[in-house]
Design a protein around this nucleic acid. Sequence first.
RNA 1: GGUCCCGUAGCUCAGCUGGAUAGAGCAUCUGCCUUCUAAGCAGACGGUCACACGUUCGAAUCGUGUCGGGAUCACCA
Length: 592
Amino acid sequence: MNIEATLKDDIRQAIQECFQTSVEDIILQPTKKEFEGFYTFVTFPLTKALRRPPIEIGQTIGSYLTGHSSVVAGFNVVQGFLNISLKNTTWLDLLSSISTNPNHGSFPANGQSVMVEFSSPNTNKPLHLGHLRNNFLGSSVARILSANGYDVVRTCLVNDRGVHICKSMLAYRELGNGETPETSGLKGDHLAGKYYVEFDKEYKRQTKELVAQGMGEEEAAKKAPWILEAHELLRKWEQGDAETVALWQKMNGWVYEGFNETYNKIGVSFDKTYYESDTYLLGKDIIEEGLQKGVFYQKEDGSVWIDLTEEGLDQKLVLRGDGTSVYITQDLGTTELKYQDFHNDRYIWVVGNEQDYHFNVLFAILKRLGRPYAEGCYHLSYGMVDLPTGKMKSREGTVVDADDLIREMYDTAESRTRELGKIEDFNSDEAKQLYHTLALGALKYYLLKVDPKKRMLFNPEESIDFQGHTGPFIQYTYARVRSILRKAEQAGLQAVVPTDYASVHPAEQEVIFYLSQYPSRVRAAGEEFAPSIISLYAFELAKVYNQFYAELSIFSDPDPKAVQLRIALSAAVAETIRHAMALLGIDVPEKM
RNA sequence: GGUCCCGUAGCUCAGCUGGAUAGAGCAUCUGCCUUCUAAGCAGACGGUCACACGUUCGAAUCGUGUCGGGAUCACCA
């Protein structure tokens, strides 16, 4: 049952019957804690149309509802606020319908398909904290959309070519001495990253040397031997030079092994991976098409442009004078390819907000070109992750490495768990599994609880907190509920909602109320591409359950109906927490 | 300089399609384990919602301006 829809219908009917006025949108809000009731209808907006004072409107509607609505038990009016309480039977019906619905929080297929592209790593360095936010956001959004009924395709576009890749290749060739992940003991992506850093060191040294010899800084940056060599390497790669391609394949292979290890660890996977080395030449035919359609124009030097000043953007280059692609050219081509491959109704790019402008341009061009998928494109623009010391900068070595971070979270989970000593009966594998579950739960929750659009601060001390508004708090609540349910099972007690339970306790009502809110939260999270809505909800649900847990005893209540109801309530909470956390990509433990 | 985003408690964040005395968590302080897991619960403390003006019965929320922070404006990706 959808309690909100029922209430809205009843209120609409009340207004129609009492005032002979029809109102389209009825807006309900949850009643604030200090007032009695669960739903509040604000009557101020009706005063003009009904020409009655807000209190009178509230009284009239309230009386009508009490007499006619199947779900309203009573009401109170404070100023223009009509606070509505629900019938005891309504609470039981609500819980019953939630308990018996195995798909609470999942919607049926909507016939629409969506592609979510995320992660998109560069193969010259290991994943860092920023990538983690991206990965967690992308895979969570994919799950949330799936729960909303979409057919979801998860894709990754690997940036595996370009001058930055050649830089690490060059440094490795010159300084590597044939080092491999095996001989060095370094994870493949870290090994490549090491040579990217080595390149930068040597490049800086060379630049400085040239400046010391009297060259201008800008010129020196362009003429340092290694940068020239890196560009030469890129040319060779593009020409398919066997030796260069072999080195590129070898190093990228190492990097992919490293990435896969990390992806497995964090539970991220893709349905399809695109490689820029395959797609970087795409898009040129679209440029040709745009020229013919008059969407683009060509300058004397042969470069191709689009004038987007009407859209509030600028003139933008879409093809270089020498006929080679730029970023936007590739993206036009890759988007076309994605459409040809999957024919999705919607396309979502999970990319940081420093690329807002790029996506505005991309989407504007797609619209100008009249692409059928243009309207369905969306840039899920998320904010940067800052450190207490400021912005992360890879060149300055202030990045938080993903593998290191996961390791630290694991260690924290282990020591915290050992201190509490609650899992003495676990064998070593079970214990490791738990530490991993907690470590990732804490990390994912920390990064997903904030509105994706907003820049956020990563505070290392706060991130390893397992109390309060954290993943482990919710996991703990789940483990506690599971413990209750195991006990109930042993006692042969069924999780069935009694139909004749005399009076549902306020603490029980509170939990049922939150349970009933879940589907609309999943809906909202899907519409706004915001896992934070689910994060916040899971926390709130855990919190009200813990309050209920502290206030009422489940097994020692003399009323067997109460015991029955509370077990059913607990089972519904466990299932909803598990479902919500799964949407965030977070596992929940049976015991902790 | 143009464009865009942000500014809410000491800190991190909710709330923003206008509604009640602005909410959580952390930190600080006080209670609660002979009863289902205390990674918990209850309470205290803590606010000029950056500032100003405007719209409105009503503004943290909408509009304009100011200040402060960030991003972006490459024939880089």
